[in-house]
Design a protein around this nucleic acid. Structure first.
Lengths: 344, 344
DNA sequence: GTGAAAGCGCTAACAA
DNA sequence: TTGTTAGCGCTTTCAC
């Protein structure tokens, strides 16, 4: 807060009019209630005095903070900036200010952040990092703040959400590999406590089945986290169990990168020996070696839709929750090719 | 803002005590003024009623919003998330909430964001995207809000700033190339209206000179922006003018990537024919093809230092501005090698 | 150690 | 069309 902002009172005195009149002029919804000449003088005085309405004080009175809390796991994870920008763009447009907090996937930090949001009386909440059975749920319900989930969702339902169509994404990856002639495809799955991990895994299995292939549960290795190291380890498990595997669908790009590492460690070439498909299409995935074939998710759009849903929920709190599922697209690059001869 | 938060008044009534007493208990600085027994009952009632102090209302009274505005060009630029996280971590620790706004390098959007910050009565400002002669400067001064610059700085001085030691970074890159035996090194410079572009360019020239080599201004091509395409174009200019160049220092990693592209277009191999050094060490630079040798900047640390400086400025507004320069490090990877035979 | 009262800057209901 | 008044939830000075 700075030295001394001019107040509505200062403007009123300068014009020789009552403060409420100034308020009326400044508020678009009530400006027509004041005579044009006075309005003009008020506007002029406000500009001359460098008057900036105190939005916080206004919020105290109107009981709306014009503020939205955005909870994400980690801003430095390349997945989230586009989502946040999408959210922010529509929120700003609507006169809201987004407040961002990182949880680093720690439940305790998420809880603290939620309490800070509550202390600021946010008008709404966007949660980008929930787990399927999120411990925050009861507190959320108690708070009664309009909330939208984005990117990941919860098992319970009842909260509006905007997510990628993960099953469709897995199918895109599997069908691409099948079309290339791969007969034996493995899956490096993400953590199953996350909706993305579970949905991509289920989608993978369903797509294999839909193609009339044998579904072997052992062709799926679950990674402990969405990080490169975990991907390498899961890749190793998979390849140890099935040396004749010719393709891997990874549940995200980092896991795919881990698979790259494990393949290199074994002296296997990608895509010559084993094809790899990622998930997310993170920035610069086209610069990897080899350039990564991956399922592109329109992250910014997901953020935009989430913010719109939230504005809706704020305006009409009783509207039943709905889930928006956004369609992903396959981006074919250099990490997939036909399987080696004799392994089709 | 949600349905009905319990207020300090509710707590007071529950305990049968005056609201001011509740306030005293809740405020660490005045708690000792109230008897232990009453304090205990107040605390219990507050917890039972689920009372969360309204930080906004408190701010109205104390004239401190406990809020800091952070202005960045683009959150989706991998440079900024680590800086923001660094800022946020120390600000949160100190009880402040960061509000982020993106400018997309548009002066008009920066101005709007600044006004929104002013309307929220932020206690401080962190600006990450200033240009050397920033048009925001006069308005900033008028606002009188404690401000810290980060990552880039302005020519005028007088505002505390935390930046990378760009000259030192350029020297690191040049010396590395010289040590490898390169005799003719070019520079793809960043936009000169940005302090980083100017400082890295100056540092490059100075390092060449310090090594006793001829300084040719024409060995520098200035890119229009810090984007891949601009890097490719500048690289082309450079290589057209000096086909015998064996190494390029790029003013950031994206420009380096552009150089990769231009080299590929010419059928030149990196690092066999031409070595390339980047600047920033962006995430996954080690995954590029070839893995990028680059000047690592401790972005998170820079954010941390900036926030500390801001807290200092908020606490002691009259402290003279100082600039903190953080030391970069060279990370040698696969994009640099000895020059081709006959070109040393 | 506790209560009373004023007021931060604004909006909104009611009067004139 | 304009003025009056009350109060959002909190902190702080002053009395007791």
């Amino acid at each position: 807060m700075t030295k001394k902002h001019a107040s509505i009172h200062d403007v009123a005195r300068a014009v020789g009019v009552h403060p409420s009149t100034v308020s009326r002029v400044l508020n678009a919804r009530t400006r027509h209630l004041v005579s044009p000449s006075v309005a003009a003088r008020v506007t002029a005085a406000a500009r001359r005095l460098g008057y900036t309405p105190d939005q916080v004080a206004a919020g105290l009175r109107t009981r709306r903070s014009s503020t939205v809390g955005v909870l994400i796991p980690d801003l430095a994870n390349p997945l989230f900036p586009p989502i946040v920008r999408g959210i922010e763009s529509v929120l700003t447009e609507a006169g809201y200010t987004a407040i961002i907090a990182n949880t680093d996937n720690a439940a305790a930090r998420a809880r603290e952040a939620l309490e800070r949001f509550a202390a600021r009386r946010v008008d709404g909440l966007v949660l980008a990092g929930v787990v399927r059975r999120d411990p925050l749920l009861p507190r959320l319900r108690a708070l009664g703040v309009p909330t939208v989930l984005v990117n990941r969702t919860v098992d319970a339902g009842g909260i509006p959400a905007v997510v990628n169509d993960d099953a469709a994404g897995s199918a895109l990856a599997v069908d691409h590999l099948l079309a290339l002639g791969h007969a034996f495809i493995g899956h490096v799955a993400g953590p199953q406590r996350l909706s993305t991990g579970a949905a991509r895994r289920a989608g993978f299995l369903a797509a294999i089945k839909a193609a009339g292939r044998a579904v072997r549960e052992s062709a799926v290795a679950v990674a402990r986290s969405y990080e490169t190291g975990a991907g390498a380890q899961a890749g190793r498990t998979l390849l140890d169990a099935h040396p004749r595997l010719t393709a891997i669908v990874a549940a995200n790009d980092l896991l795919a990168l881990g698979c790259y590492d494990e393949l290199a460690r074994r002296g296997l070439a990608c895509p010559r020996d084993v094809s790899v498909v990622g998930f997310n299409d993170m920035p610069f995935a086209d610069r990897f070696s080899p350039p990564l074939t991956t399922v592109h998710i329109p992250h910014r759009l997901i953020g935009v839709e989430a913010a719109r849903l939230l504005l809706e929920a704020i305006a009409h709190p009783e509207t039943p929750a709905r889930e928006i599922r956004v369609a992903p697209e396959l981006v074919v690059r250099g990490s997939t090719a036909r399987p080696p001869r004799g392994r089709r």
